[in-house]
């Protein structure tokens, strides 16, 4: 038995990978639910209701999908160029930190200027967090996976220091949290009395712009070439170092924007538990979307639904909500197999 590369992948086969991944992760989740002694149908129904069953549930899922879309896009563009940025979690906190620095009274602008300013600051901070890994990879060929992973811990400790020291809100009664973003910087709510905020538009716009950029620009072509075969790309005259610089900047900026939208949209102030691993889940989002920017929106919504649904099921039934993480992880692994099966055909 051997594998043979397909010349072209029919469209229905490219959908097969994510569908298979979802099916396999549902299967694994079913086994765990049985072990927990609950009925599978009940559990999945509770999950579906908790994620999509009411206006409130739907807005919760969509607000969870905002950061996941942005970190998913961050992973998608980086992985396309084979720049394995696993540091979206840290870059997210960099963005949140920048938004807190700029948005808690440093300057007093109206919302029309303030909100874009917050995103620009956050995106810049996120991008800068990738400067060192980019430099080390392109100049010294130090593996970016390890540097970005380790920087996550450094950045988180830096945020922890800022929240207990210079940035701590004097009104926080000693809790390690920063002062709230001023009113002009707060992203407006989209549905009254819910947590869904205008960050949704930012995430959608980012997905569309990134798709256009990758699909129609020279930069997009260079990214694709680098990802397919970096040696061939270099020989063809594609400036690898420069392209990777912009890939790193964009990837970090997107993750930073996720941090801004969480601080200025969802929470209102920076805390150490701002992100329950959005940076890492973003990798799953991107993989499930086969690194396609528009697909990222769908897979982010789906994975957001799983985690919101699992939370609400966990409260009602005796199934720990860690089941959401397990489903995300098994989706990452099974989508890899699915992608391989769609790209190769098995010959005897």
């Amino acid at each position: 038995m051997r594998l043979e590369l397909r010349e072209s992948v029919p469209w229905w086969l490219s959908l097969a990978a994510p569908i298979m991944a979802i099916a396999l992760s549902l299967l694994l989740a079913s086994l765990l639910i049985i072990w927990a002694g609950e009925s599978i149908i009940d559990a999945f129904r509770m999950m579906a209701i908790g994620a999509f069953g009411s206006t409130f549930a739907l807005t919760e899922t969509l607000s969870r999908a905002i950061p996941l879309t942005l970190t998913g896009l961050a992973a998608a563009i980086a992985f396309r160029a084979r720049f394995y940025n696993i540091g979206a979690e840290g870059q997210l906190y960099c963005g949140a930190l920048a938004a807190t620095l700029v948005g808690t009274g440093l300057m007093d602008l109206n919302a029309f200027w303030m909100i874009p300013l917050l995103f620009v600051a956050g995106a810049l901070a996120g991008g800068c967090a990738l400067l060192l890994p980019w430099y080390l990879k392109t100049r010294l060929s130090v593996d970016e996976v390890v540097t970005t992973l380790l920087l996550n811990f450094v950045i988180l400790l830096l945020v922890s220091y800022a929240l207990e020291g210079p940035l701590r809100d004097p009104m926080s009664m000693g809790w390690p949290q920063a002062a709230p973003i001023i009113d002009a910087g707060v992203l407006p709510a989209l549905v009254p009395r819910t947590r869904l905020h205008a960050g949704l538009y930012v995430a959608l716009a980012a997905a569309i712009v990134l798709w256009l950029l990758l699909r129609f620009s020279v930069f997009g072509f260079s990214v694709k070439a680098l990802g397919l075969n970096s040696n061939a790309a270099r020989h063809a005259g594609i400036p690898a170092t420069r392209t990777l610089f912009w890939v790193a900047m964009l990837s970090g900026a997107l993750a930073g924007a996720a941090g801004v939208s969480e601080v200025a949209g969802l929470k209102g102030y920076l805390t150490l538990d701002l992100s329950p691993g959005f940076g890492y889940t973003g990798i799953a989002v991107a993989m499930l979307a086969n690194l396609h920017p528009l697909g990222v929106v769908l897979s982010a919504t789906f994975l957001a639904g799983i985690s919101v649904g699992a939370d609400s099921m966990g409260r009602a039934l005796g199934v720990p909500s860690y089941i959401a993480d397990i489903m995300v992880a098994s989706a990452v692994l099974s989508v890899l197999i699915g992608l391989m099966l769609s790209r190769y055909r098995v010959r005897r």
């Binding site: 993989m287 720990p320 860690y322 993480d325 397990i326 992880a329 890899l336």
Partner: peptide, 29 residues
């Protein structure tokens, strides 16, 4: 299968740690 070592590794890290936490939560809620 010769699949991406980066993505597989991250996937296994996510899977193994969330499964461990799940098991602990199941046994000691």
């Amino acid at each position: 299968l010769g699949l991406s070592q980066h993505v597989t590794g991250i996937g296994i890290t996510l899977l193994a740690s969330s499964l461990s936490y799940f098991i602990i939560k199941m046994l000691l809620p």
